[in-house]
Design a protein around this nucleic acid. Structure first.
Lengths: 415, 415
DNA sequence: ACTCTTTTTTTCGAAGCTCGAAAAAAAGAG
DNA sequence: CTCTTTTTTTCGAGCTTCGAAAAAAAGAGT
């Protein structure tokens, strides 16, 4: 049940709103902020001078532009890069990265490693992550302590963003990354699903196109999805949710990496396209270690001639299309961004995706369906993590007014 | 973008919260309200004495219970039945009802009609609705004007609850019921999907079981769904959404009433079970006018022997199960309530529903899946409408403090 | 060079809200 | 009849936002 609003909540929220406006807009004036938030000029003036005094915002007396307009020129407010730092880490198959990012979102320092994630014990996997972050922080000895750690993983997490429940990159289940990191570094930490972070990033990159309702689908070895509905990231009730790749396309159909049969992924994941192109039986075990180069070659052959490769892509497109149709039945159609290596073969997939959607009830208002592709997912995931973590920092630390900028409280309310 | 909080919003929200607490709890004391809302006793005291003075709440000096406890006895606060009335209407196949309901949710008066909805022109259909409401209001001549009209329809509505986009009960599309009713009666009106109202009602009836995440599925001639996620009614981005019955179960499969193929409904709707039990071909046209008695007889035969009737129910259960599996992949598992005539045959359906879910990736955390049945949907729909409309009244009219209780403003922000 | 106009930002008093502490009220217990 | 316990109300303090007016910082015009 929602709780009453106290008097001091009011200031907190309005402070957060001002910071959010600056983060979104880049360098708004006080007048602009007053307009977008609907608060009075006096209030904005009071809040922003507080925030400047506390060191979170800086005034940018833009000497460059000669303003052209009459009247007192607007003073741009910008985020103070030195106000805080966060750590953004990413874990995917055989790849581990960590970066220190400043309050404006710029990368300050970075570390990468290439551990063999599939064979590592759980302790060693966690150890690699901690070692990477430790090394990263060692390089920034004099700096202030980061206020937050965010880790994106390929795989599902719990709804509270504390634990990685399952991942294709390791056999181990339920790894409590957030708890481990908080214990190790005494900094609030969360674990996020990579596809969800892709969706968050798209929203920051192109707010025109990706505003309130859209879908990001990762086409890679597996199939992932990030979903934004009514302006908010959609997650499951217990997990990060949105497992588009594991909706059932064909009951009792092809064998999926998850162990079940007939999932969308079992037709549209790289391993599935590979399997079908090779004319291996539907129930043959999903193959690991298919390189992006292999898939590019496969796509090239599919483009060149109407052979088994093209048929494999047809099946993939059809599975994605019917899956989207079912999804659209539930949420109504929305723009879709296809992300990742598979998006490079979107030209081969598109006709069958569209044809399949058209054969579903969800495909009715097809005018709302538009496709877009982004081939490289890693920068997108990093950006999404960055913005999500900074937004948390904005809301939870700075907005509280008297909070020490040292991040003392490792609260559990990190959802 | 969310907007700043003004100073007067604060009172408004806290007033709404007090009213909500009374509506939920029934007859809480000021002390209880203070505890649940987290506001101070002084604030609750001030707000509730205002609300009593304005006539929305009444004190119930419970003379009956001899309190048993020491100290000043708590004074129960209850809603004042005379504070307002609303009109709750429902439109389904060949059935039209309208009722005046008081501020506590009790029915004051009611009218029913049985027009032949399928053959009526759009104007006549709308006319029947208006006539029914007019007749209802004529019977209550001296009473205060109702503050709101809510209409539940079998069919999809737009996300703003203004228009019925499509319904199986009439061939006409895009009937702007809300606008028509507002123009006719000068009372704010909304149109809601019946299954969504079922879900709302379940939440009021059994808040223990149906709290934050659950699914209501209507098994009838067609298949409908109402979904509550994270405590809020889930709707699509453009429509009432949640068209569970039109997720694709079998690509290019059986012919559905919607014109597409392979929808869940094309296997699990009454007409589909009937079609399969008769061994009519999958692409034969869905048959209208199947009575509940016919279905009961069919279910009896299915229970009695393993013939085509039982096979038809097997297919239905399987379609529902795979559909739920796909839904669970997206939102994670949640309790399900099966509502309507079809729920009476749940015993025949259940094994196949469970078996199908177990064969999907979404069926993993099956401990969170529990089934329940409610056979009569009409009272549920009415209760859901009532509570939804009254909640709107609480928030929009009374919470505004100085609003005249006459409902002058027919605002457009009714979503 | 100076004044006038325009626009942005700050200042200041007024009004409203919630809170905590204390007082008042309304019972049962002894 | 007094004491204890619990609920409810009262009252002043401390915030916050708002509107109006003042101050600041430019360009425009003569």
């Amino acid at each position: 049940m929602s709780v009453g609003i106290r008097h001091d909540d009011l200031r907190r929220r309005n402070r957060a709103m001002v910071i959010a406006a600056v983060r979104r807009t880049g360098q708004p004036s006080r007048t602009e902020i007053a307009a977008t938030t609907g608060l009075s000029h006096s209030t904005i003036s009071a809040i922003s001078s507080d925030l400047i005094a506390e060191g979170y915002l800086v005034q940018d007396k833009g000497g460059e532009t000669p303003s052209l307009k009459r009247g007192r020129p607007q003073v741009a407010l910008t985020l103070n890069p030195d106000a805080a730092t966060i750590i953004v880490a990413g874990l995917s198959l055989n790849f581990l990265s960590a970066a220190i990012v400043d309050y404006t979102g710029s990368v300050v320092a970075e570390q990468r490693r290439k551990p063999c994630t599939a064979t590592l014990s759980q302790a060693d996997l966690v150890g690699e992550l901690i070692a990477t972050i430790r090394q990263l922080m060692a390089g920034q000895a004099g700096a202030r302590r980061p206020l937050r750690i965010i880790l994106s993983v390929q795989g599902t997490t719990d709804a509270g963003a504390r634990t990685m429940l399952w991942s294709p990159i390791t056999p181990h289940l339920d790894i409590p990354f957030a708890d481990v990191l908080e214990r190790e570094f005494a900094i609030p930490a969360t674990v996020e699903n990579d596809c969800n972070m892709m969706a968050v990033a798209l929203r920051w990159r192109d707010p025109q196109r990706y505003r309130d309702n859209f879908i990001a689908i990762l086409l890679s070895h597996g199939i992932g999805m990030g979903l934004v509905l009514k302006g908010e990231l959609f997650t499951g009730t217990r997990s990060s949710g949105g497992e588009f790749g594991h909706m059932t396309h064909q009951p009792d159909g092809a064998l999926c990496r998850c162990g079940q049969r007939g999932c969308v992924e079992a037709y549209a994941g790289n391993y599935a396209i590979w399997r079908n192109a090779r004319r291996n039986p539907e129930d043959s075990a999903p193959q690991d270690g298919i390189e992006e180069a292999d898939m590019r070659a496969l796509a090239a052959r599919a483009r060149a001639a109407d052979g088994p490769e093209r048929e494999a892509y047809r099946q993939a497109g059809s599975a994605i299309g019917f899956g989207l149709g079912s999804l659209f039945a539930l949420i109504d159609p929305a723009p879709v961004a296809f992300v990742g290596g598979g998006a490079a073969a979107f030209d081969i997939l598109e006709p069958d995706i569209r044809a399949a959607i058209a054969r579903t009830a969800g495909g009715r208002h097809s005018d709302a369906i538009s496709f877009d592709t982004v081939s490289d997912e890693l920068p997108l995931i990093r950006q999404g993590c960055t913005m999500r973590a900074l937004t948390f920092v904005d809301q939870e630390i700075f907005a509280s007014g008297t909070a020490s900028a040292q991040g003392e409280s490792i609260g559990k309310d990190v959802a």
